[in-house]
Amino acid sequence: MAGSMRYRLRVDLPDSQEMIDFAVAMRRIQGISDNRGYNIIAGVHGAPFWYCWHHQFSRRSDNRAQLFLPWHRAYLYYLDLALNDFVEEGGVAQPWWDWTAIREVPEGYEATDIGGEESPLRRYRMNIDLPTGDIRRFTRRRPGQNPAARLPTETEVATALNDNDWSSFSDRVQNMHDHVHGWVGGDMGDTTTAAYDPVFYAHHAMVDRIWYLWQIRNGINTITGSLLDIVLDPFAMTVRDVLDTRALGYEYADTAEQIPPVDPVPVG
């Protein structure tokens, strides 16, 4: 993962080097209980801090404050930074779960071990202090238990990418997003605990990737103007700040292979 950009790659098998490196970083931040750690970062989305933006209205915008995509981009960026605070060389990037191709929870997130150690991607032990009763248990999934739910298809993604109206595009992506939360079920099916499940971030990387692909086609600034200067609490960023993934140091790639340097062969 050397170079100027971090390339987010598709979720791979648990024995791939990218997944092993990512798991190492996740294991490290899951072991930290202060505000650098996973438990606090996960708590920013739902309980106990409740900052997430979904299908909401706002008095500050006439456009239903469609901050779903920008807010979650800032959120994943924040996790990126937290992960890379504990990586000595090269850095790690979050993988994306292409649910149009992998029609189940990816093996990389279901395996019990990654890199010879317990996987930090299969589940996470939540530690949430709440007035209504603390939550101290492992996250759970119940994939496919909703008879009306299914994972979005490639056709639906293509339809969204062909919709050049930001507002309509955002609604389409959010609907696909909601389907995936409902399909995975368990803690992923409840805003309260969804972000504690590590697969949440692979799902949202896919959502963010769809926006990234849409921006390549439609330009990065084709977003409702009234949204641009809204601050994405609790991150010190506005919507404008998150429009360009390259300014945040990452892109979505299909493959990225390291080629080690070689010594020159003397020929003259």
């Binding site: 106990p48 739910a149 939360h181 409902g182």
Partner: peptide, 17 residues
């Protein structure tokens, strides 16, 4: 057509939260 709602089942705050 299809739609999905990502819900929030229970209140986790104090009374009135």
């Amino acid at each position: 057509g299809q739609f999905a709602i990502f819900g929030h089942l229970e209140c986790t705050g104090d009374d009135g939260h």
